[in-house]
């Protein structure tokens, strides 16, 4: 497996990542030892789900695989669950860009 396992229970895929993936169901309040110290989970994290390993301010990038997987929609504290409630995709967003696209395409010759 690519990455670094912390405390036998979670995976950090690259050193640029801001989240770790739970390799087993993790309980709320669990302390996870890391090279830098420890992380206390702020809620239960199911197997395969992610938690923050560093604080992320609203609108900042969420990184996994060393790449951007979305934007924090709110402040995310260390140990919080990171999922659709606080991390938004920036791609395939027709809901937010439709009017912009429609305006741009107005008057454009289809040929």
């Amino acid at each position: 497996m690519k990455g670094r396992i912390i405390d036998d229970v979670a995976l950090i895929m690259t050193e640029r990542d801001t989240v770790a993936t739970a390799l087993t169901d993790l309980d709320d309040g669990k302390h996870i030892r890391t090279d830098e110290g420890s992380i206390t989970l702020q809620e239960a994290i199911p197997f395969g789900h992610k938690f923050a390993i560093q604080r992320m301010e609203a609108d900042s990038r969420v990184q996994k695989y060393g790449e951007v997987i979305g934007t924090a929609s709110d402040t995310i504290r260390v140990g919080e669950w990171v999922h659709t409630h606080n991390c938004e995709s920036t791609r395939g967003r027709g809901d937010v860009s439709k009017s912009a696209v429609a305006t741009q395409s107005k008057g454009v010759d289809p040929e």
């Binding site: 395969g48 789900h49 992610k50 695989y65 790449e67 951007v68 997987i69 979305g70 659709t84």
Partner: peptide, 15 residues
Amino acid sequence: NQEGGLTTIEEKSLG
């Protein structure tokens, strides 16, 4: 996919 821990299309694609 979301229930299985995938949050965004970017994350799904990278995997």
